[in-house]
Structures are given as structure tokens and as C-alpha cells.
Design a protein around this nucleic acid. Structure first.
Lengths: 121, 121
DNA sequence: TTTTTAGATACTTAATTAGCTAAATATATA
DNA sequence: TATATATTTAGCTAATTAAGTATCTAAAAA
């Protein structure tokens, strides 16, 4: 039961739920893309991803300086399907989808640099 | 999305998850039965049930002095199915099932009175 | 080799939450 | 009508959690 509870708790934060929905829709995102999406600090994103990782819900790969996160193949499919249908149509999720299309239209390097300089998108 | 989050948060407490599993398995329980199951104070149970009720996950009916809770018919079925399969086999849930069979073998009035006198089962 | 960079970790603060006791409420019972 | 009872609400405490800033880490880039 502890594992189940850990997974539920991992999803019980609004920003983490948004990240999971974004990863489900777009496959893979790096920290600075997630940071841009959530509009919080990088350390905050890092900690959220750590929670999701410790719950076995996301996996990461390193590419040069970048860490990319994606949903783990062990992510409970039934839970994901429920969550997606439950939030489908919500204003925040729809807005996130649009924002992500913009975010992903920027080369990753440029996005990270723009963030650093306080510009971003 | 706020409704989804509220439901996830409602389940993100161990005792509340246990209650939902118990209601799913046994249909309907009164406060003192839940109190006996969880081994916490009655006011604590009352507040937990309030959280679940506010999330639209349980319903109640009054019968004399007793309030009985059951899962709402609006409880997300996919979520319930996932949770059940996810915790199936866990020691706590199995132990709860046994405890509930004992609890339900007592007439409700006697259980409530025994609890009040610090005896219980 | 030195510098830069993306992300993780440490520390702090403020908000939220689970548990308890005391008291209130609604209503059944005597 | 007074009393008893099951449950809810109020108030408090301790623990947990989300956010920020500062700093560290690993490793890419110059």
C-alpha cells in the first residue's frame, strides 16, 4: 500500500499533475522546458521531478548538460488514463498544451539561455 | 482540473485510502465502525469523511443517531479499479478486511457503546 | 586547464494537513 | 422535559510540503 500511496501523493500537487499530463502529451521534456511551463524556479522543478522519480513515475536521460524526463514505462496506465480523461478540457491543461507548443518551437539551447537572462517566452 | 486534484488529494492520506477500500468492499459503514477500523478518534474520522464528501467521493445517510457512509455513485470507477488492484495483497488492506469482518459481526449499537467505554474489539 | 552551464541539493519560510481534546449540535430515549 | 448519545465543529499542536534563494555538482565548452 505504501507504493500506491506514494504514487497518489506524487500526483496530488497541481504542478506535478501538469507535468505528468505534459509528458504524456509531448513525450519528453527537459528541466528548462518544464520550468518555463510551470513558471517556477529551476530548483522547484528539480524537486518535483525527484518526487515523481522516487514514486517510479518518471525516468530521465542525460544529454550533454540537459536532463530529459519522460513518463516511466511502469507508470500505471489505468491511472494515467483516468487522470487524462478527468482533466481533459480543463482550462489549465488546454493552456499548457498551447504554451508547450510554443516552448517546443524554440531550440532547447536558446530557451535555456533566454530563461537565464530572464527573457523566456 | 481543481476537481481532479481534489479527488487525488482526498485519496492521498493512508487512512482515507483505507476507508475507501473498506467502503468498496463492504458497502456501507457508520462512523463508529470506521473509527474502530482506523483506531483514531471519532472527530478525526469525521474530518476525514468530510474531506471525502467534499471531493464528491462519499455519500451519507442518517439512521437514528448513526450516520452511514458509502461510496458515491459518482466515484470515478477507473480510479477505484486502479486503486483496488494497486493495493490488492497489501498487508494493511488484508488486515483491514479481517478486522472489518469482526467489526461487522457486532451489532452496531453494541459496538458504539463498547467504544465509548474504551473496550471495543 | 579554466570557465560556463544545467540541474541538484541545502536551508529557510509560509502554508497545509493529520491527530488530539473540548465543546457544540441534533435528536433519540427515558 | 431532562438526559443520553453519535457525530460534527472549534481550537491547538506537530509534522509535512511547496516555494524561494544560495550553493554545490557534474560535465560540457572555451
Amino acid at each position: 500500500m505504501e507504493k500506491t500511496l506514494k504514487q497518489i501523493k506524487a500526483l496530488s500537487d497541481g504542478n506535478r499533475l501538469r507535468v505528468v499530463m505534459a509528458l504524456s502529451a509531448f513525450g519528453e521534456l527537459c528541466v528548462c522546458q518544464i520550468t518555463e511551463l510551470l513558471q517556477v524556479s529551476t530548483p522547484t522543478v528539480s524537486r518535483h521531478m525527484s518526487v515523481l522519480h522516487n514514486a517510479g513515475m518518471v525516468e530521465s536521460r542525460k544529454d550533454a548538460r540537459w536532463v530529459h524526463y519522460r513518463l516511466s514505462e511502469n507508470f500505471p496506465e489505468a491511472l494515467l488514463n483516468w487522470a487524462e480523461s478527468s482533466v481533459a478540457g480543463s482550462r489549465i491543461i488546454l493552456k499548457d498544451k498551447q504554451a508547450l507548443e510554443t516552448i517546443l518551437s524554440f531550440p532547447r539551447d536558446e530557451l535555456c539561455r533566454a530563461r537565464k537572462q530572464g527573457l523566456a517566452v
